[in-house]
């Protein structure tokens, strides 16, 4: 039971806003200690896993390119494009992005967009420009809300559509686990049964985006 204290360390550490890197290592030491590992063993195990998981940080390779394009006015240009589209609102724009992202993710092309590559340089400034165009210049809290919604839309679109692609890691994990439990089936079945959730996610989050538009319009009037 005491090994679960590592999870408690995470919850408390994040809640009182200690530095998360510190919290994570303290949690590892706590659970490791109660599992009978010495601190040095935990540090070594942590270092090994840290090294093996370097691929998690690879998306940052896009930062220099994103930075150079921002320097040359990409965000401003993206916002200007929005101004040319008639009838565009923040919600409708994000619905368009969500459908594009869902379709490409379902085809296995998850890595073609993302928070670093597209949301920061393109989607967030375009969403903000749509708010400005439709409801007038937003105040700072509204800008933050629009940016957060842009980031959330990217996550929602990818999470609920990527399993429609047969060779996605999570699909293969499911099939592998079932095989080890003596249930053998083709990955295509997992993909097919992921489709209802993908469609439902489009409806649910799309409806929220339309409500978000209304909230933005109300905010503009007051």
């Amino acid at each position: 039971m005491l090994i679960l204290l590592g999870v408690a360390v995470i919850v408390v550490g994040f809640a009182i806003r200690l530095n998360p890197l510190l919290v994570v290592v303290l949690a590892a030491l706590t659970s490791g200690w109660f599992a009978g590992l010495s601190p040095l063993q935990v540090i070594a195990a942590f270092g090994k896993a840290f090294n093996e998981n370097r691929y998690v940080s690879i998306a940052y390779l896009a930062l220099p390119l994103v930075g150079v394009l921002e320097r040359a006015g990409l965000r401003e240009r993206a916002a200007a494009i929005i101004a040319k589209l008639k009838g565009v609102t923040t919600g409708r724009f994000l619905i368009g992005y969500m459908s594009l992202r869902q379709i490409t993710a379902a085809l296995g092309l998850v890595a073609i967009a993302g928070q670093t590559q597209t949301v920061r340089p393109l989607i967030a400034p375009m969403a903000e420009a749509a708010t400005e165009l439709h409801d007038g210049p937003p105040d700072l809290p509204t800008r933050y809300a629009v940016r957060a919604m842009a980031a959330a839309t990217d996550n929602v679109a990818v999470f609920f559509s990527e399993d429609v692609f047969v060779a996605m890691g999570s699909v293969l994990l499911i099939v592998g686990f079932l095989t080890s439990s003596k249930i053998v089936l083709d990955p295509i079945h997992i993909s097919v049964w992921s489709i209802p959730t993908a469609l439902a996610a489009f409806v649910v989050h799309g409806a929220r985006l339309l409500l978000f538009d209304r909230r933005l319009a109300r905010g503009a009037k007051t």
Partner: peptide, 14 residues
């Protein structure tokens, strides 16, 4: 993110 991935490995070990 990379720290949390490593924490996952230590949690699994424990």
């Amino acid at each position: 993110p990379q720290f949390l991935a490593a924490l996952g490995a230590v949690f699994a070990l424990a």
